[in-house]
């Protein structure tokens, strides 16, 4: 079975679709290590984002994945770990 990788582009697309984007933030800039809160996303936005990732990638995220992953890099790594993608992002 071919493994699908969850990329930063996937995350940005899902954030924009599910929660929108703050006009004061450049999502296309270097955001991998910027906190979600700083990017303008509160816990409900991350819940919505998590739900969309689960649907699209066919995985189940534990609640603490979303609360523990404070940055895009951490969330991407957590999702790829579930997808079986090694050492991604």
């Amino acid at each position: 079975m071919a493994t699908t990788e969850f990329t930063l582009d996937d995350l940005k697309r899902i954030l924009r679709e599910g929660a929108g984007a703050d006009e004061g933030v450049d999502l296309d800039g270097d955001i991998l290590d910027t906190g979600f809160e700083e990017l303008g996303y509160e816990s409900l936005a991350l819940l919505e984002t998590g739900g969309r990732i689960e649907r699209e990638f066919g995985i189940t995220l534990d609640d603490d994945v979303l609360t523990d992953a404070h940055t895009p890099r951490a969330l991407i790594a957590a999702v790829n770990a579930l997808l079986g993608v090694g050492a991604a992002a």
């Binding site: 679709e17 929660a19 929108g20 984007a21 703050d22 006009e23 303008g40 409900l44 919505e48």
Partner: peptide, 8 residues
């Protein structure tokens, strides 16, 4: 309105 408010 800001884009962040539209989906909600």
């Amino acid at each position: 309105l800001p884009n962040r408010l539209l989906p909600q």
